[in-house]
Design a protein around this nucleic acid. Structure first.
Lengths: 337, 337
DNA sequence: AATTAGCACTGTGGACCAAGGAGTGCCAGG
DNA sequence: CCTGGCACTCCTTGGTCCACAGTGCTAATT
């Protein structure tokens, strides 16, 4: 049975442990928090909390430390997201505002988030699937190759060289470009395959081979590897922490793009903050870390995710506040582009 | 006076210390290396080497450790670059071969280099200054904005949105694009400013405002921030090492793009391997690391640099071999694109 | 003159131990 | 149901001791 006071004790344990990084004892709690009861009473509450699995002691005669379950409860029920201060908001705004292209927006975002949270920040490039085609450009390279550039409304540019063609004329390329743009400019990328379905039939037979090559590369470039682009910053912040798992394991996990993608991907509820704590993480090396992630996007379209990785012993309210704020600002910046 | 044998001793000290990471003593040397003299003689030589500053002992009654000066001498005079094995070469080739665009070439290169050397790899994107303009594309976005895309022959794509224009017609944009391409297609980027000098004068007055905006953005996009794009991999490999400087300092230095740029930039002799050892590095946090870097490029044009950062206690011949080999392959791949 | 064997000397690191202290669990009384 | 008190546990710290690895020096040898 968790009464009010026990919850207050749990909250205090989490907060103190996050601050000091040392097991917190009953006396220290009684001193630092206005719980209105003596340390003996707190000890009794702690026994109850320990029986329920919210806290644990590293060894007899040590203070208590929150378990993953304890953090989970803290995040779900005992804390609320802490909004950023006004100066912090202004700093975000001005820092992100100066970016000139998508690469720079992403780069600045990730550094910003790392700095705000003093942890490792992860930012995923906006997904192509939910953005639409702004323009397709075909540029002949010499005589037998074409470079294709797809520009999307989220500022992302996808490029491919199409190789091994029969000789192509400038003119034919121009026609094909016009035809392509007529067919798919403005479309969502996810609709592109459908829109291109009947296209080869409209191409004059002598250029059909080229058209088919171009289309196949175009379609291929739209599938799959878009969410793969992920940027990281702030790994140096990990050095301050000591993990149960070896430091190396954490770094290794963070270098695996697929791991990061899945890490962010686990966020259940779009447009909400998601927190994954310790053992909840699927990856071995990250069992002693927590991940706070959020969607960002334009309007109510989610484009991709951002997140923060830190020790389970992290300042959840603060981190959540920073992640949420940055996600919102990135969305605004992208919308304004 | 450094006679032959003393050099052999120095070489042996470096090699053994790199292998074992423990101060190497005279007995161990006499056992493991065919120097043909007793440990007492080696001790005498070591005293001489220590007086000259090539080796040092952490404390009395410990073995000797190479100093930065010792490593420097080893690299310059006592070792030669170790070529990669045939299977390694094949691995590089097939791994880099599968890349579809510049981003992926760079991403694969950096991972490859990190894996080969088991250290931190750095790859700089090909510089724009030495590449030439393949094509300039202008795409109207709505009515008052234009997206400009510059495609270079090294596969790099630079994009910018030009904002705050008076209303522009499709037609005017088309004219401007044609004019731009006529003026600068095929030019080296470094020559572009010159080529564009008289251009505004040729534009009909009613579109001159737009032309000027476009040109200023174009010129601006060509200056400066091109070498800034740098990619890193293998930081997890640092965890295995213990530095004199704190781990954190090293990671922090590596997250500063400007530091990396300068680090690579210090390479003196283009198209050669450069090694910067310990205290030779300008950055505080990197005083206990060494950097091996090399240029890569197409033909004999240097486009950018790649490098490896590791502990001063590194396998120089092997690392140098890997860096050189990878640099060459990247050049080839870029040439073939 | 260079090399070698022998030996005394010296810091380091690990094992062992004792004292100190933080924090607990439990009990008896308010 | 709360609290003060107390015995107990286990970690941490510091100190001592010893073994070890490796040195520097000297005297003998080639």
């Amino acid at each position: 049975m968790l009464n009010e006071r026990k919850l207050a004790v749990l909250r205090a344990v989490v907060e103190d442990f996050v601050n000091t990084n040392e097991p917190v004892g009953s006396r220290a709690l009684a001193d630092r928090h206005p719980l209105g009861v003596s340390s003996a009473t707190i000890r009794n509450d702690m026994v109850a909390l320990e029986e329920d699995g919210y806290i644990a002691q590293p060894h007899t005669s040590a203070g208590r430390v929150p378990t993953d379950k304890g953090y989970r409860f803290f995040v779900d029920r005992l804390s609320s997201v802490k909004p950023l201060s006004a100066p912090e908001r202004r700093a975000i705004e001005s820092f992100l505002g100066g970016a000139v292209d998508l690469d720079e927006i992403v780069a600045r975002t990730v550094r910003l988030l790392a700095q705000l949270t003093r942890q490792v920040a992860i930012v995923q490039y906006p997904s192509l699937t939910r953005s639409s085609v702004q323009h397709v450009e075909l540029v002949p390279l010499g005589n037998q190759r074409i470079m294709m550039v797809v520009i999307t409304d989220t500022g992302r540019v996808e490029q491919r060289v199409i190789d091994g063609l029969e000789a192509v004329s400038e003119h034919a390329v121009g026609d094909l470009r016009a035809m392509l743009n007529r067919a798919i400019a403005g479309c969502y990328l996810s609709d592109v395959p459908e829109m291109l379905d009947g296209l080869p039939a409209q191409v004059p037979p002598e250029h059909r081979g080229i058209a088919v090559s171009v289309l196949s590369v175009l379609l291929e470039s739209l599938v799959d590897r878009h969410e793969e682009k992920i940027v990281l910053a702030g790994t140096a912040n990990l050095a301050a922490v000591d993990f149960a798992a070896s430091f190396r394991d954490v770094l290794e996990a963070l270098e695996e793009n697929m791991v990061l993608i899945r890490l962010l991907g686990e966020a259940k509820d779009p447009s909400m903050l998601t927190v994954s704590i310790g053992e909840e993480n699927f990856h071995e090396g990250l069992r002693s870390t927590s991940v706070v992630s959020a969607d960002y996007g334009v309007g109510n379209q989610s484009l991709a995710k951002i997140g923060v990785v830190g020790p389970t012993r992290m300042d959840y309210p603060g981190t959540m506040g920073a992640v949420r704020a940055v996600a919102r600002y990135v969305g605004q910046i992208l919308a304004g582009q």
